[in-house]
Design a protein around this nucleic acid. Sequence first.
DNA 1: TATTGTTATACTCTATAACTATA
DNA 2: TATAGTTATAGAGTATAACAATA
Lengths: 163, 163
Amino acid sequence: MRKPASKQQGNLPRVDQVSDETLRHFLGYHVKRAYNVIRSDLQRTLEPFGLRIITYSALVLIVDNPGVRQSQLADALSIERPNLVVIIDELEQRELIVRERVPTDRRAHALKATLAGRRLCEKAVKADHAHEAALLSGLSEKDRALIGKVMARIERAGGEATT
Amino acid sequence: MRKPASKQQGNLPRVDQVSDETLRHFLGYHVKRAYNVIRSDLQRTLEPFGLRIITYSALVLIVDNPGVRQSQLADALSIERPNLVVIIDELEQRELIVRERVPTDRRAHALKATLAGRRLCEKAVKADHAHEAALLSGLSEKDRALIGKVMARIERAGGEATT
DNA sequence: TATTGTTATACTCTATAACTATA
DNA sequence: TATAGTTATAGAGTATAACAATA
């Protein structure tokens, strides 16, 4: 599939294939590319459920933590509180979750999944699992275990400004 | 550092610590978090050089591929051609690269790094390398070598829409 | 007619300041 | 005064359409 080699011309040789030689030596390069693949695959996987990655993640956390407040959820998702509002709006309008007033602190909203929300969540989690299994199908058990270990290691080693 | 346990109240138990139990089972969750750490660390690393990750990546590719055209570079960086223009503008204004006319195809620009560009690139690559070494300091040589292989495997296993 | 670089534009994500209602 | 949720807004990053010059 390579193009035919071009003639050299003065000091402006034509580039037929861009080499990423230097960048390929960096882990960040590969992790970014791998994450892009995982992300776009997951987006496709969640599309039939009408979920984006961020709404999916929020829904999972609400299902697992009934009564969680928005500020706690924003922290857990590593997003700013203002940006969570529209995500919660979206889930609430689809009647997957409800905002309940907390009697002991009327400033706060306690988030809870509806039955429909829990059902959709369960299906989406299963689809997510299947999609990941497909991505990892070529890897040995040992290699799969290694990924988790390395990712956790990088996370701990990193600085604070994570976002 | 845990908050004191709260009293249960009806069907609205207060959540003291948000559990990411379900999400933690997914590779995507960890890869995303690891990539966020790598990215923000790299941003800090490149800041003293006045480079962003995207301008850094572009500069490295131009240094490694003298004479590369903008459309090729956009492909290699997985960005759209219009978005590359401002990046090239930035590097050119700082006199790290030049746009040269290609005599055989007067539509195209051949990109070449200046001496200053090559020197800055070399320093930035060294800093990048040091920053990664720090992130991976807790890992064995064997594990480090494996990780590139595993990431590449995920990349190949994924669908097409990568961006 | 097709392609290179460019402009304009729009849409998503993310980040910050400031408001309201409560505490 | 401080905090939870909200609004408005601004900045990145990313995507598409359309144009001029050239092939």
